[in-house]
Each structure stands twice: as structure tokens, then as C-alpha cells.
């Protein structure tokens, strides 16, 4: 009888997709979540691009540069911040404890989170592109090669930052602490990675610190997708550095996964 029931249990994939649907429903019903995580990057983009104006040689506007960089920052918000606070909250409010008492496996739970992050991040890109196109002359690339770059930068950023978010949620003592523990490095790195401030205004040491973390590489990757190649000389290295970008983001995926495996807990209590 036990075996008959085991084979009849819905597959972890099916349960994971069902969790994804419920995660999305909860995410978009939470007004604070939608405002702070989801529309905040677009809001900052409008502010920044309205404060700083000017054009680079080749007629590229500062607004276009901010728009491209902010796509990187936006999906770090929908992955890193969303997971960091979301998983800590699931641990605090009993979601994880309840799931641990049901046939749901960790795989299904994380599959649900992946669906949430993927959909929220894609929606974030669409929102930021819409703002960029409407206000700051952003145009969609027509070269398929650029969309390939878009795809892998998007994927590696979302995966590495989701994993880091999950890992940091285990270090945090609760959801409130997780919000602080994720937001402080996030905002600091937005400055150091040339998202909030153009690269030429940053001191050398900040660039170095920024280049250790994923946001810089994500922002640079999206600049290479949405800006003309003539803009590559404005980068710290003078080129788009696709190889280094893939390597840096890939390395963070590995580090994030290891941290997750070592630190993941179902509840806030130890033992």
C-alpha cells in the first residue's frame, strides 16, 4: 500500500510548478513587495536619468546608459532581494515548516522559487525597457547575437543572485534582518558598480570592489546588449569583456550553490 501511494504522489516537478503559480500570486498581491522590489528600479531610473543629462560621442544619451545598467540592477532586485527576503520570510512565517511536514521536497520548493524569479525578472526587464524606450530613446537591438548575449547575461545573473539571496537568507536571523542584510550590500554595490553613478566618476578602488560582485558584470553585460559597440571604450577595461563577465557570473553561481547547500535550513531554530 505504501508503495502504491508513493507512485501515485504528484511528481516533484508538478508540485514545483504549482508552487510557482502560488508564489507568483502571492508576490503580485503584496503591495509593498511590488512597489519596493519591482517598481523601485524604474523609479530610480527616471530620477537618475532626469538629474544627469548629456550625451556621449556617437549621440548616446546618459539616459540610455542608465536604462541599460538599471536592467542589470532590476533583475538583481527581483532575484537577490526577492529570494533573500522571501526565503527568510518563508522560514519566519511557517511556510517552510509547514511544507516540511508535507510530501513537498526542497526541490519542488526551489522550483517554485525559480518560476517566481524567472517571471518577476522578465517582467522587470519589460518594465524597465518600456520606461527606457518611452523616455530615454532606448531601442531594441535587431542583431540576434545581442539577444543571445541578453539571454546568457540574464540567466547567469538571475541564477547567481537567486542562489546568493537564498544563502544570505540563512545567515539572517529573520525576515527583517534579511531585508537589511540584503539591501545594504545591494545599494552599496549599485554605486560601486556604476549603476547609480557613471563609471567615469568612480574612484579606482570602488571600481575594483564593484568588479568582485555580480551587479557590475550584469550591468556591463546589459550595456553591451543595448548600447552601440562604440560605447565599449567607456567601460573600465575599454571593452565589453564578455568572457570575463561569463566567468565572474558563472563563478558566483558556483559559490552561491555551495553556500546554499551548506546553509539551507527549514526553520529558524537550530538542531
Amino acid at each position: 500500500m505504501t508503495t502504491a501511494q508513493a507512485t501515485a504522489l504528484p511528481s516533484p516537478t508538478r508540485v514545483g510548478l504549482s508552487r510557482g503559480r502560488i508564489e507568483l500570486r502571492q508576490f503580485f498581491r503584496q503591495r509593498e513587495q511590488v512597489i519596493f522590489t519591482f517598481t523601485f528600479p524604474a523609479f530610480i531610473l527616471v530620477l537618475l536619468a532626469s538629474i544627469f543629462n548629456g550625451t556621449y560621442p556617437d549621440g548616446v544619451s546618459v539616459g540610455q546608459v542608465f536604462s541599460a545598467s538599471m536592467i542589470g540592477a532590476g533583475i538583481v532586485a527581483t532575484s537577490f532581494l526577492n529570494m533573500g527576503v522571501g526565503v527568510a520570510l518563508d522560514r519566519e512565517d511557517g511556510t517552510l515548516k509547514r511544507l516540511h511536514g508535507t510530501p513537498v521536497t526542497a526541490t519542488s520548493y526551489f522550483l517554485g522559487k525559480i518560476v517566481l524569479v524567472a517571471v518577476a525578472s522578465l517582467a522587470e526587464v519589460v518594465l524597465l525597457l518600456a520606461v527606457g524606450m518611452a523616455l530615454f530613446d532606448v531601442t531594441l537591438p535587431t542583431d540576434p547575437g545581442r539577444w543571445v548575449t541578453f539571454a546568457w547575461v540574464f540567466l547567469l545573473t538571475v541564477v547567481s543572485c537567486s542562489l546568493l539571496g537564498i544563502a544570505i537568507s540563512s545567515i539572517a536571523r529573520g525576515a527583517q534582518s534579511a531585508a537589511a542584510v540584503t539591501n545594504v550590500p545591494y545599494v552599496a554595490l549599485l554605486f560601486m558598480s556604476g549603476v547609480y553613478i557613471t563609471l567615469d566618476a568612480l574612484p579606482e578602488w570602488m571600481l575594483r570592489v564593484g568588479s568582485l560582485f555580480p551587479i557590475k558584470w550584469a550591468a556591463q553585460g546589459f550595456r553591451s546588449v543595448f548600447l552601440p559597440d562604440s560605447m565599449a571604450v567607456q567601460e573600465a577595461a575599454g571593452s565589453w569583456e564578455h568572457g570575463t563577465t561569463a566567468l565572474a557570473l558563472g563563478a558566483w553561481c558556483v559559490v552561491g550553490l555551495l553556500l546554499c547547500l551548506v546553509t539551507f535550513r527549514w526553520t529558524n531554530r537550530r538542531g
Partner: peptide, 8 residues
């Protein structure tokens, strides 16, 4: 003590 699924 659970307070989960508040929005559902």
C-alpha cells in the same frame, strides 16, 4: 504559530 499564505 504559522502566519503564512496571508495573501491567498
Amino acid at each position: 504559530t504559522a502566519n503564512d499564505a496571508a495573501e491567498l
